[in-house]
Write a protein that binds this DNA or RNA. Structure first.
Length: 254
DNA sequence: ATGGCGCGCATCGCGCGA
């Protein structure tokens, strides 16, 4: 079983990229963030025609998440029951006995902004809810765009980023607290190349100069960790024409 | 200190992302 997460930065623009990537990379479950589509405009037909079940929740212009799956999707939950939020950032579903949470964590904009306060409150409520999900579902994968680089080695220029949003101590502490529930960062279960990132700025030749951040993560419960045989970042779609600024992260399970 | 790039929405600049 292969499980992937990808922030597509508008599914309207990136649907061809997603379909091409799925053709070239057989994937059982794909979690998508930043669809930027209301549900009436979601391209469910195209996705279903490719052999996927799909669930989604979106809004105009911002946010929006979806889960694509070759196997049936059950017990779907939209948003965090513990956090009233008009922003569509969370989908949870059960697929083949695995509880999958697809999350688009708020960006936070700047540490002194209201959006950062919202990010921290969102993460606190997310922790409380995931703690319950973990208790109910031993096989749990919490994946998505976390907008947090866990460590300095996940940042192309830690000195320049010090204290900034995505790396601030409070954000990293919130991620650690989530891991303390009993989750692990699948990417770090395996040997990885230095300077591995999942996002690169569109500006200033960010990708070509590998000026990136690793902010998209696959977090696994212990039971799923035992089944995880690989976790990689696929940089290829970031090289395509008109790419998303994020690229997929993929975990393989026995 | 500012803007770089891309997207959506709305027009011919702006908010937002990271």
């Amino acid at each position: 079983m292969k499980l992937a997460t990808w922030n597509v930065n508008s599914l309207n623009v990136r649907l061809p990229h997603v379909m091409k990537w799925l053709e070239e990379n057989p994937t059982d479950v794909l979690c998508i963030q930043e669809t930027k589509l209301t549900d009436d405009k979601f391209p469910a037909g195209t996705i279903e025609a490719a052999g996927y079940h799909v669930v989604y929740t979106g809004q105009k212009t911002y946010n929006g998440v979806a889960i694509l799956s070759k196997l049936p999707i059950t017990d779907v939950v939209k948003n965090n029951p513990k956090f009233e939020d008009l922003q569509q950032r969370i989908l949870a579903a059960t697929i083949d006995g695995v509880r999958v949470v697809c999350a688009y964590v708020p960006n936070g904009q700047a540490v002194d902004s209201d959006k950062y306060e919202y990010k921290m409150a969102w993460l606190s409520a997310f922790h409380d809810w995931i703690k319950e999900e973990a208790a109910q579902h031993p096989q749990l994968a919490v994946v998505g765009d976390y907008n947090i680089a866990p460590e300095d080695r996940d940042v192309h220029d830690p000195a320049a980023w010090e204290g900034m949003v995505h790396v601030s101590p409070k954000e990293r502490a919130a991620l650690t607290r989530l891991l303390d529930i009993g989750l692990v960062d699948a990417f770090r279960l395996f040997e990885q190349a230095d300077k591995s990132y999942s996002w690169w700025d569109y500006r200033g030749l960010g990708f070509r100069l590998n000026k990136g951040l690793r902010i998209d993560h696959i977090l696994l419960s212990d039971a799923l960790k035992q089944r995880c045989t690989a976790c990689v970042i696929d940089r290829v779609p970031r090289k395509w024409e008109q790419p998303s600024d994020h690229t997929p992260v993929i975990a393989t399970f026995s």
